[in-house]
Each structure stands twice: as C-alpha cells, then as structure tokens.
Design a protein around this nucleic acid. Structure first.
Lengths: 292, 292
DNA sequence: TAGGCCCATACCGTGCGGGTATCACCCCTG
DNA sequence: CAGGGGTGATACCCGCACGGTATGGGCCTA
C-alpha cells in the first residue's frame, strides 16, 4: 500500500480531462505508450477500474470521477506547499490578494487604505481575476487572501471574515421599460423575454443550452447589457458593470450578498494574521460611516 | 518549476519530524546519504534553506516549518485520494463514522437508529477514536464522517451540520467538597489546589509542564477522577466518564459545546449526502423531544 | 588528542520511467 | 467486404535518477 506519486496523479488528471490517451500524452509532453502503462499500473495498484476504454477514446468510471476530484485537490495542495515554502524564504515578499475585477471596488479601496495605514502590515499585491478563479488561486498557493462572495462563491475549505452585506440590483439597459422602475422582484427579472440571462461557460468550456447570449468575461457582458441584449443581477456595489447606458434597479427580494475575506483554513502566517486583524477592525468601524 | 513528488515530501517530513538525518533515514527504510542528497536537491529546487544543520542534528528554518505543515496537508490529500478511490470501487462498502469514544453517546445512538430506519441509507461503520484523532482520519480518507465538537475541535476545512448544543459539567470525585454543590463557575473549578487539571501529551509525545497528572487515554483520566486526583470539564452528555465514584456538577459559565457532524468540505458522494440529510432531519425533529 | 557523532561527498550499480516500433481492435467508408 | 484511419495495448530497448557502500570533514567531549 505504497503512496501514490504526484506524477501518477498528474498523468491521470490529464487523461481524465482529455478522455483521450494520445492528446493527454501530448499535453504531458510524453509518448502515449508510457502513459497507457502508467494508468494501467495505477488501476492495478488501486485495484479499481478508472476508465472504460473503447475504440473512440475513454470515459470515466465512478471511481475515476472520484479520483479526478481528489487528485486535483491533492495536486493543488502539493503545488501550494512548494509555492508557500518558496514564499516563506523571502520574508519581504508581498502577500497576494485575489479579487474579482470590479467587484466590491470601494470596499477593496478601504481595505488597501487601512492596510497601507498600518506601519506593521506587510505589502499587499492585488491580483484581479475573472469569476470563480479565486478559490483555485488560494488552493494552489498563488494567492494568500481573496475577496469572495457568499453565497455565490464556493467557500468550502476556507476560513472567512465577513466584511459587508448588501442587497442586489438588476443592471438593465437604460432604454428598457424596466429602467423606469424604482424596484423590481426576482420573479419579474428572471424571465424577461427580450432580456434573457447570459450563459457562462462550464469548466470544460462548453455552454449550457438556453436563450441568452454566450459570454466569457465581465466586459463582454457589460457591453451586451449596454446593447440592450440582456440583464444581470449583482451586488449593489459592483461598479465594474456600470456603463452610462446602464441603469441599476434594486431587486427587493434577491438574497443579500456578503463580501468576505477568505484565506486557507490552515494558514498560520503572522503576516497574514495581521492583515486579517486589520480588516476585521475596518469592518467593525464601518458600521457607523456608511459605505459610499 | 516542476512539481514536487510525494516521495520528496515524505522524506522531508521524516527529517523535519526527527530532526536527525540518520534516524529519519532509518524510519524511511533507506540509507542516510541518499536522504541527505534528496533534501539538498529539494532545497535547491525550492531555492530555500529548509534545515539548519549542525554537529548535533538539524533544526527547521521558518520556511522548513511552512513546508512541514503544507507537506503534511498535501500528503494527507494524496493518501485520501487513493483511499477514497479504492472505496469508490466498491459501492457496497460501508461508510465510516469517526467519533470520540464515549462522547455524545445518546446522540450517536439516535443517529445510528435514524440511519438504520432509512431503507436507502448506506451501511455505517463506527470508528471509535481518542481525542482529536477525527480530523486526521477525515483528512486521510480513513473516515467519511465524524462527530466533532465546537469549539474544542479544529474544524478548519470541514463542512459541518450542527446536531446539539449543550452546557458543560465538572466531573469531580464524589468524596470532594465540590461534589456537594449544585453548580459551580469556571473560575472555581480552574485552579482547585487538590484537583489539578490533567495534562495530555502534545503531538510529539511530550507533556507540558504543570501540577496535574499525565494521561494518555480517557479511561486513565476517568480512573484518576475516581481516585480523587483530578477533575475535568466536559459536555453534559459525555457518559463515558461517569463512574459511580463521579459526581457531575453543572458549570454555569462554561462555553456551550456544540456537537457537529463533520465531513470533508468537497465531498460529493450521494451516499454521504443521504446520511447528512437524514441527520439534519433528526436535528430538526429533536427540537421538541428533549434528548436523554 | 583521540574518538564519537553528525552530515556531506564520491562513486557505482540497477530498476524504472520513457522512447520507438508494432500489434490488435473497431468503426467507418468506398 | 476489404481497406484505411484512429484508438489503446504490448514488446523491446535505453538512459538516468535513485539508492547503496565507502569515505571525508566538522565539531563536540573525554
């Protein structure tokens, strides 16, 4: 019952993602035969069939799906170990804060100001990313801290500190009748025939079926709203979306969104702790002076 | 920037724990020179000094301490991947519930009864362990679920479902004056001169300094109370401790203890989900009929 | 100063991971 | 129905990286 090596896990993940030994081997920079052998050896050691092969490629068994999920987690942990160790070797290295571009902009500004004001606080580098990337960055050790949103982001495995809770607004084209309203309900906004909700790509790059336009980035979506093609529901403070052609209408019954500071649950670095402490103080102080 | 291999991590953890290349090599079943070389290579690849060697052995640098923590996490994740994959190969395999021996006994009984009553619920095997072992069992994939206690256990990285919140009692020898009381405060119980709090071993097996007796298991501690040598403060329902010679006195200002069901935050198995759902229903129903 | 106790270096063998060539199978297609 | 293309599996060989033994070189202690 010897341990697995990360090489075997990387190989398996490649095959499980490509569902094709040849392409996986190419991605890994090795030939196909050794890859086939490695997967067979893995199946033999785990005493489980991971892939069903046929003439057109391979597909995952249930056990294979489990290993794919677990292997990704394990590989992230290994990569994080390397990266954090390297970082620990340079005590001056700035900590990395990952945040969605445009989300919670004013809160972010206040956070950075607060940290800059603390003489003992370490330097902080801001890493802007697209939706949903923060979790992976934290898990791989590419970021030390992230600004995330509950309940939209998956916070499993992270420790969090609530920063701000706010309602949501519908961002609609200024030319649309909804733009005249002072408030709307979720039901009204969910299925507007001429403003179908946009579709984001899945992990594998394909899009779900539906009437809405396909988008990959926030700016694409913002422009589609400006063009009168779609609408979206987002936290009130997400200013990245606000074009002159947009109108924000409060959605009275949308679930409130809490902006949180998230970090790996097991983190122990005193530099990180000092940032978190400062952020907590900011939140407490923020109760009185309203944001924005 | 190639990934680390688990072999390198295992080697480093051995050295970091032993702080002695020779002993670590022996533990790993290899000779000392290849181990020295492997660690040097690791330091070169990470571009960080991990250990300061001197004539009497080695000690961890700050970066080394970081790697020790991260490497343990990563190795646990790798071991869990192997174990859970193997388990997924056998759909009939019972799920493993880890729980402290003697803690929350009646709640556990109700849980098992509830699960046994569900025709669709998978079989459950109970794994009794000593204090603090549950987290490691979950992280290594040796258990699928655990009964843990907030705030005493470290729940970082786990998803949880609250089951029961209760106050704490002091377990004192029946012959001691405190046994006559109907309630006590934490302050009264914290420093009773003739009943010093027992000391548990640290992770490395050594004991902290202090006046109390050294213990390694719950039954040792229970007997020491019966002998009139110590006292302890535990949740009211922990019946494992109750000997005829013991008296339980409520501690009015002790923080309440919440018994929770915990599982790996990223778990996705439908069999696990069905158990959690059943447990949640039990909690809701338990609001009316008082426990015990 | 001799000896013991560390870890590092030098040097060598071998097992395993990877490469090339080829096979076996299935489906499609003309 | 036969042939070709595309899939993963097998056979065989090679090189290197990992592990072993022998030895060196500090640094204490007796």
């Amino acid at each position: 019952m010897d341990d697995l090596e990360t090489r075997e896990l990387r190989y398996f993940v490649a095959v499980a993602e490509e569902l094709h030994f040849g392409r996986a081997a190419e991605r890994l920079g090795i030939a196909q035969p050794p890859l086939s052998r490695a997967i067979s050896a893995l199946e033999r050691r785990l005493d489980v069939r991971l892939l069903e092969r046929d003439h057109r490629g391979a597909e995952l068994t249930d056990a294979g799906a489990v290993l794919l999920r677990e292997a990704r987690i394990a590989l992230d942990a290994v990569a994080a170990a390397a990266r954090r160790t390297r970082a620990a070797g340079d005590p001056e290295r700035p900590l990395v804060l990952a945040t969605k571009a445009g989300a919670s902009h004013e809160l972010l500004q206040r956070l950075l100001d607060a940290w800059a004001g603390e003489p003992t606080a370490p330097r902080v580098e801001v890493l802007l990313c697209e939706v949903g990337e923060q979790a992976g960055l934290l898990r791989r050790g590419r970021a030390d801290l992230a600004i995330m949103h509950r309940p939209v982001d998956d916070l499993a495995g992270f420790a969090t500190e609530d920063l701000l809770t706010e309602g949501q607004v519908a961002i609609v084209p200024g030319t649309h009748p909804l733009a005249e309203r002072h408030e709307v309900t979720l039901a009204e906004v969910q299925h507007v025939p001429d403003l179908p909700i946009a579709r984001w790509p899945r992990l594998d790059g394909t899009y779900p079926e539906g009437p809405g336009p396909e988008v990959r980035t926030q700016s694409q979506l913002a422009q589609l709203v400006a063009l009168g093609r779609t609408l979206l529901v987002i936290p009130a403070s997400s200013r990245a979306w606000q074009w002159p052609e947009h109108v924000a209408v409060p959605v009275v019954d949308a679930p409130p969104i809490t902006t949180v500071l998230a970090w790996p649950a097991h983190a122990r670095s005193p530099r990180l702790a000092s940032l978190i402490r400062a952020a907590t103080r900011l939140r407490v102080g923020a109760a009185a002076p309203p944001l924005s």
